[in-house]
């Protein structure tokens, strides 16, 4: 797979470390109500879709940026690549 890095252009996926579902960007507030349930969901439960999946890739063998990649898990087609820092909180 080639990941079209927003700053560096197309890079081989093997330069990256895969960190899974992009829900990890939205860490629950530990002071919120039901924070125990929210952290169980955050830490362990995944939608794991067959189809479009938003996920985090870390460019360890490159510029060490975190990318938010939208990819189809059935075809391995990469639909969109963004810098995670540009999307946080959106």
């Amino acid at each position: 797979m080639l990941i079209d890095h927003p700053l560096l252009g197309p890079r081989d996926a093997s330069e990256f470390i895969y960190m899974g579902d992009a829900k990890l960007l939205n860490r629950p507030n530990w002071k919120s109500q039901n924070s125990k349930t929210k952290f169980l969901d955050y830490g362990y439960l995944r939608k794991n879709p067959a189809g479009v999946h938003k996920e985090l890739w870390y460019h360890e063998q490159g510029d060490r940026s975190w990318l938010l990649v939208t990819r189809n898990t059935v075809t391995h087609e990469i639909l969109k690549v963004e810098l995670a820092r540009d999307t946080k909180g959106k």
């Binding site: 439960l45 995944r46 939608k47 794991n48 067959a50 898990t73």
Partner: peptide, 16 residues
């Protein structure tokens, strides 16, 4: 597993 259990809205501690 996630596809089948997802039909009734159960998220599993599983990635495929």
């Amino acid at each position: 597993s996630s596809q089948v259990m997802g039909k009734i809205g159960i998220n599993l501690p599983i990635e495929s």
